[in-house]
Write a protein that binds this DNA or RNA. Structure first.
Lengths: 135, 135
DNA sequence: TTGATGTATTGACAAGTATCAATCTCTTGG
DNA sequence: CCAAGAGATTGATACTTGTCAATACATCAA
């Protein structure tokens, strides 16, 4: 049973069992699909886990301040004290702390507290994961 | 003139000209700074342009649906019709169109309309820029 | 031309978030 | 112990954004 045109479809849909009707509709769907694109298997490429993880990283880098912080830490290398970052941004201390926390929550940076100070550095592991996702 | 301790600072601040006072305060600031971290030059690493561009890309990938779309297109390679993407997501058509537009606005994907259909594909150039930023 | 179909746009609303002021916690120096 | 300082947390507010329903636009088929 082949369906070639919509008019054929209308004919084919008359006076058939529900099962047959479903088959006809499915075939018509396939036909319509084939008009715009070959039957490429796209569903096999869905990986919700990797995508949501990538989205989490994207969220962390979605703010200009955080992108700047990340860039700064990456290019500087090693640890940087928050008190050293603060004068570079026209932000209140809680806001800067908030952004650094977001970066740390996304595991893009690591934080280590020593005495009164908090030192931030790039988390190389997460950076590698991000690069791997893009390859 | 060297400032060694806060008590020295108080002494140094008494009965001096505003200019001298400013110099003393600046030196004290430097002293305090040196307690937590060496005088590393951090300001030279700021690049607002690159950071804001990175933030734009991050924004585009900050949503799970868009990260999934990007991943899908990247792993599939070549063009994919929107009508082929639609059944993979439990979203209304306007919402899917909205997400694809955001990806296109960020130049992460390219779009070409042929007839009634819109074909989306990865923009390799932007992908390379993103990878370069992470290296 | 007319109807159907794939896609884009608009308007509205709910959820999320960047920011600040105020406050709290923890550590150090005296 | 006490006071000061670095950083984190909380609460409030303005702004952004993801989502859908309704609608508009463009193209193809008859």
């Amino acid at each position: 049973m082949a369906v070639a045109t919509p008019s054929d479809l209308a004919e084919a849909l008359s006076a058939v069992s529900p099962a047959e009707r479903r088959a006809v509709l499915q075939e018509a769907e396939q036909l319509r699909r084939d008009q715009c694109c070959g039957g490429s298997s796209l569903a096999e490429h869905i990986d919700p886990g990797a995508a949501s993880q990538a989205a989490a990283i994207g969220k962390a880098l979605a703010d200009p301040v955080r992108a700047q912080l990340f860039d700064l830490l990456r290019r500087h290398g090693g640890e940087v004290c928050q008190c050293e970052l603060s004068p570079l941004f026209e932000l209140t201390q809680p806001t800067l702390s908030h952004h650094l926390r977001k970066l740390a929550d996304a595991r893009l940076v690591s934080v280590e507290r020593r005495g009164r100070w908090a030192y931030y550095s790039i988390n190389a592991e997460a950076l590698d994961e991000l690069r791997a996702w893009l390859s």
